[in-house]
Design a protein around this nucleic acid. Structure first.
Lengths: 316, 316
DNA sequence: CTGTTAGCGCCTTCAG
DNA sequence: CTGAAGGCGCTAACAG
């Protein structure tokens, strides 16, 4: 019994011959170790809880894929849960993860509150925030510099001679992805003595953005739109075309996230690339370091971003 | 100890007062039952294994979301794994699921082989195939009638006066989704005395489809394209526009799957709707019935499909 | 290097 | 209606 455990986990030296006998028996009986029993005895389940707002959102699936790939590399599995970004559900899920004795949690949320942090501490489980900013930096996280990316985008557009640059996004509370992007946008617009223009929607979604841009375009002259994400950016392109204006001639459009959508738009969409897959992959790798007490250089990993220029903002 | 178990699982009558005392204690100690121990003792983990080729593929995330939503309703959780459609990996994953003592497996694969079936039987775990056809109907499954959908599409296009209808898809082995769709296409073309035209790609992916259609359009006159999925259909639209032809005037385009992409294309894409979310939801609901020995009317659930007409195939 | 012995935290009889 | 006792299948000391 114990010897079998030893060869299976390679946790101590076993004589070659005995090892062979064990392996043979295992094969003959087509024995499979019971991971649940193993988890109970060892206190480690080789399972990571993944809490995301919504897997079916444009980019999330890629991110999850990144997590899962790295997880497999390290012999972990993932339990996937959707929170819809609801605080109550998120807190509940963290509790459930605890019950399930996951070894760690990769957590994504539109906005982190102190209630989250409390729950994390209570649960005593290693956490990695992914694409979720903790302004106070209490929790390990993997992010990009969203505000900085907006700054870059405004720079980029202004250098191309655009001055009436609008920001298309929803209005959320503080600590949101979009709010960070908006913050960078506002800062750089002011920095360049340009007047910020806002096209606001209730939710970040194609149809709403389509309508918002359509009406806005007829009311106020603008020559560029920076959208909070690709889906809205594409809505902007279509809205502009619907209003018989031209992209990029009349209005340049820049998106955010570099989802597959960006290259499926006509004109192809200039977008700020976040490595979605890497997001997940890096977060999971980070997790494994935490779990194996590997040394880590920083608790706040910042992934690089980059403007991918396509036709939607090309020189006219 | 035993009484606590009884109140937690509501598995026997407990005096109201004792129940209250237990609940109070639980709250005071912020006690959480250990799901792993529970799983070991009860032989049920309340966990479902979900094996999919690739979550990050266009529609899969929606499907997974459907699974997860219904799973939560019934207090299950899901372990998500990507197989990349590789037989070896799929078999391996089924084994792992067994070790993890999942209560059931929802399985998706581009093509089911007898090796799969053997592994299922060996593992002795309830299985539900999802969007995966078992030609011999040995395993419970949730599908649409793919061949029938293609028949409908050809009908639809022919009634609109199109006669040179091409099928855009990759060449796979038998038992594939695309092969079913192709089968229906061929059958109905012949049935109507039309000559099947094939635009083949190696993989089912935007870039390849784009190139394939571009070159094909210049070589052979066609007036309609039925694509194996939306992504390829959008590639077709763009390829046609790139070649200075018009959609739908010169060539009508019909896609498959009704992913979000379809409404983000210009012209908007006519597509054969499969309820992706429902796919997952129904499969998971099916699973719960299996697990609770509820009566089930049929082992092969066939979901309805429907042609959603948009501009890409509108009357000219 | 290998067998023996305790648990891991819960569920499930079995008495009372 | 409630407590006591055994066991789920494995890991982790402990001897030998």
């Amino acid at each position: 019994m114990a010897t079998v455990s030893r060869v299976l986990n390679d946790t101590a030296v076993v004589k070659d011959e005995t090892k062979k006998r064990v392996l043979d028996a295992i094969a003959k009986l087509s024995y499979r170790p019971n991971a649940v029993a193993r988890g109970l005895a060892s206190k480690r389940t080789k399972t990571i809880g993944v809490i995301v707002p919504d897997v079916s959102a444009a980019f999330m699936a890629e991110l999850v894929r990144g997590i899962e790939d790295v997880a497999r590399m390290y012999h972990y599995h993932i339990i996937l849960c959707n929170s819809d970004g609801l605080l109550a559900r998120e807190v509940d899920l963290i509790g459930t993860m605890w019950e399930k004795q996951v070894d760690g949690i990769i957590f994504m949320s539109p906005a982190l509150t102190s209630e989250h942090v409390n729950t994390f501490e209570e649960a005593q489980i290693p956490i990695v925030l992914c694409r979720t900013d903790d302004p106070e930096g209490r929790i390990p996280s993997v992010n990009i510099d969203n505000a900085g990316a907006s700054v870059d985008a405004v720079n980029y557009l202004h250098k191309k001679g655009r001055t009436k640059i609008a920001f298309l996004g929803s209005i959320h509370h503080e600590g949101t992805l979009t709010s960070e992007r908006r913050r960078g946008y506002v800062a750089e617009m002011k920095n360049r003595n340009l007047t910020p223009i806002f096209i606001d929607t209730a939710r970040e979604e194609y149809q709403e953005a389509l309508l918002a841009v359509r009406t806005h375009v007829t009311m106020e002259p603008i020559d560029a739109i920076l959208a909070a994400n690709d889906e809205m950016a594409i809505a902007a392109i279509h809205a502009i075309l619907d209003e018989k204006k031209s992209v990029p001639k009349d209005i340049a459009v820049v998106g955010f996230d570099n989802t597959k959508l960006s290259m499926m738009a006509r004109p192809e969409l200039t977008t700020i690339a976040q490595p979605m897959y890497d997001y997940g992959a890096v977060a999971m790798r980070f997790m494994t370091k935490l779990l194996q007490d590997e040394p880590i250089s920083t608790f706040r990993v910042v992934l690089p971003h980059q403007i991918l220029e396509h036709a939607s903002s090309a020189d006219v």
